[in-house]
């Protein structure tokens, strides 16, 4: 029983950080109509940025998190106009072109990191997020995972606060609902798409720092998180942001449970079997609140 509860809590903590990866990905899908294949690579490059900055500045990786957010917000802001160009230029199937473009970004990121740092993993140095916290009667949890889970929840809360309580958030939600009508409200679409993409890139990269603290930075880690992001969006229901909170937690717990009780090797098989079943049974996501998958 203790092992079960411990596994459950570990899974929820992991789920917290997955939410912060999935929610930006889902937002970009809604606001830019872009399926960003590079999502996992933002996690990976974020982990490397955390590692390099913390080592270079000689400070704890936790303290470079704001720096990583700002840097990747700027990168996202810079990348978005290219995406905008690809999706609005006169090509057939702009969604497909955007997917190809983000594919390119993903390979560029991965290749760039491999060339610069080689194939080996790098530690993301921290002295604060080490050791464990013991909760009596349940067990000991690594501090790194506890802080990661808490960060995920706080970051997502801040993100949702921005979306639902500020003028910029209002603009972004209007664009997600109807781009043309949003323009007629006086909203500068390109600008707020850049803001949304910047927030997504910043959020995903900072999640990468925390994931790097737990598992180390690895040039090949990105693909896994891209797959996770797809999993969360389908499970949540396309276009239904709050659903990501549920699907992120489901993902974290499922991963923890299968790693503990079955085998880590089965995790991907089980996740995608689950996606398949959800698409068959409830195409609008497990909560039935998304847009139907056409």
């Amino acid at each position: 029983m203790d092992l079960f509860i411990q596994t459950l809590i570990n899974g929820l903590l992991l789920g917290g950080i997955y939410i912060s990866v999935g929610i930006g990905f889902a937002l970009v899908f809604g606001v830019l109509e872009v399926i960003d294949f590079a999502v996992g690579e933002y996690v990976m490059v974020g982990a490397f940025a955390g590692s390099v900055l913390a080592a270079g500045l000689g400070i704890d990786a936790l303290f470079v998190v704001p720096l990583v957010f700002v840097a990747f917000y700027a990168i996202g802001f810079f990348v978005q106009p290219f995406l905008h160009h690809v999706t609005t230029s006169n090509v057939p199937m702009p969604i497909l072109m955007a997917l190809v473009f983000t594919f390119g970004v993903a390979f560029f990121a991965r290749g760039g990191i491999l060339t610069t740092f080689g194939p080996n993993t790098r530690e993301v140095p921290t002295s604060i997020a080490t050791g464990g916290v013991t909760v009596s009667a349940i067990g000991t949890f690594p501090v790194a995972r506890v802080l990661t889970g808490i960060f995920g929840i706080v970051a997502v809360a801040a993100f949702l606060y921005y979306l639902y309580n500020t003028k910029g958030g209002l603009a972004i939600r209007a664009i997600a609902e109807d781009r043309t009508d949003a323009r007629l409200m006086g909203i500068n679409i390109a600008r707020y798409q850049s803001v949304a993409y910047g927030m997504y890139a910043g959020l995903t990269a900072t999640a990468g720092v925390f994931i790097g603290i737990i598992f180390a930075a690895d040039p090949g880690m990105g693909m896994q998180y891209t797959a996770f992001a797809f999993f969360m969006v389908v499970l949540a229901g396309m276009g239904y942001l709050p659903g990501i909170i549920v699907s992120g937690l489901v993902l974290g717990v499922a991963q923890a449970m299968f790693s503990t009780y079955v085998s880590g090797a089965w995790v991907f098989f089980v996740l995608f079997a689950l996606v398949y079943v959800v698409l068959l049974v409830s195409p609008q996501g497990i909560l039935g609140r998304g847009e139907p998958v056409s």
Partner: peptide, 24 residues
Amino acid sequence: LSPDEMVGSGIATLPQGGGVFGTM
């Protein structure tokens, strides 16, 4: 002017069928 700049100049458009944002 772009549509968003038009609104700032004092010309508003009602989209076809009203175009309210239903989820808001």
